[in-house]
């Protein structure tokens, strides 16, 4: 795939990248670039990206938006995911990023979205706790999906927070399928789905024991909604989510190639290119590996997978 080689060359040239070319480096695009580069065996630039993430990690384990904006800390999940999938690939020896992932995991487990008062005209269960965009606010779909992917990649898929995150994501699914930012109903009216949110939610639910019929409407909605002109980031997340459920459209590669060329015309956003390069992996995306290193804690590697153990409590509250 020539477009993919070109994409990887561009990412490898500046693996510490921002949301658009020339923009200051930011955590989200850099973490995505690191994962794309590493998954395509471009280890040296991937290491540069991971090193930059480590450099700006705060002492509480979190990652802010960029070097100057240490809050909000929602990008932490992306950092943990990047460090963890590359750490897993380095088995049997721990990678240099094992400790960074552990600190990020501690922050994730200590961070919760705010519970809201139940309201009859809201559609979702406001008692389910996931992750917020900004600390002190409610749990929303995408930060919860990102944190869930990260914790699963860190080997903590059985943790109580992950199990609750799965319940939250399923609860936020729209009645006729798909997800949006995280409201299913407002003042009694059902809201509408969005491509990127749906793709990411499906990706986060890969490997979960969910009745296929429960997810089918979302998968079908997403497949129906995609087209050759779907924009790069939405298409990338959609392909990733669908591929994880063995439902990627036959035209996915062709559409990603077309999206790549449109992205170049629009200024070659490294963020969009990184998402496209990950999407090109389909079900082979490292997010879906299940051979992760045993759970990480802030004190190193421990093997207790269950949330009810003292070790897990230490991770959560340490």
């Amino acid at each position: 795939m020539p477009w993919l080689d070109e994409t990887l060359d561009r990412l490898a040239d500046k693996p510490v990248c921002g949301y658009r070319p020339g923009a200051p480096p930011a955590v989200e695009p850099t973490a995505l670039a690191a994962m794309a580069l590493a998954a395509h065996r471009r280890m040296s630039p991937a290491g540069q990206a991971l090193g930059w993430l480590a450099e700006i990690q705060s002492s509480d384990g979190s990652l802010g938006i960029d070097a100057a904006h240490r809050t909000p800390k929602w990008p932490t999940g992306w950092g943990v995911l990047a460090w963890s999938v590359i750490d897993a690939a380095a088995q049997p020896s721990p990678s240099p990023w094992h400790a960074q992932a552990a600190r990020g995991v501690a922050w994730l487990l200590a961070t919760e979205g705010k519970r809201e008062q139940a309201a009859p005209l809201l559609g979702h269960d406001v008692d389910l706790v996931g992750w917020p965009w900004v600390e002190g606010t409610h749990s929303w779909l995408e930060p919860t999906a990102i944190a869930l992917l990260a914790l699963k990649a860190a080997g903590l898929g059985d943790h109580a927070r992950c199990r609750e995150a799965v319940r939250l994501i399923v609860d936020r699914m729209l009645p006729s399928g798909g997800w949006n930012y995280g409201n299913t109903m407002v003042l009694g009216n059902v809201t509408q789905p969005n491509v990127q949110s749906t793709g990411l939610a499906l990706a986060a639910l890969v490997g979960e024991a969910i009745e296929p019929a429960r997810l089918r409407p979302s998968i079908e909605w997403l497949r129906r909604t995609l087209s050759p002109s779907t924009t790069t980031i939405s298409l990338g997340y959609a392909v990733l989510g669908l591929a994880g459920h063995a439902a990627s459209p036959d035209e996915a590669s062709q559409w990603l190639a077309a999206a790549y060329h449109r992205t170049l015309q629009r200024g070659a956003s490294p963020y969009a290119l990184a998402v496209a390069a990950l999407a090109a992996l389909g079900a082979a995306c490292p997010w879906y590996r299940r051979d992760h290193r045993p759970p990480v804690t802030r004190h190193g590697t421990k093997a207790e997978p269950c949330s009810c153990t003292p070790a897990a409590r230490e991770v959560a509250h340490g």
């Binding site: 200051p24 930059w52 700006i56 990690q57 705060s58 960029d66 070097a67 100057a68 240490r70």
Partner: peptide, 18 residues
Amino acid sequence: MADEPERIVSGSQACPRR
């Protein structure tokens, strides 16, 4: 790892906060 709120890292271009 860094804690200073407005530190510029590694000589990379950074976005000022204020």
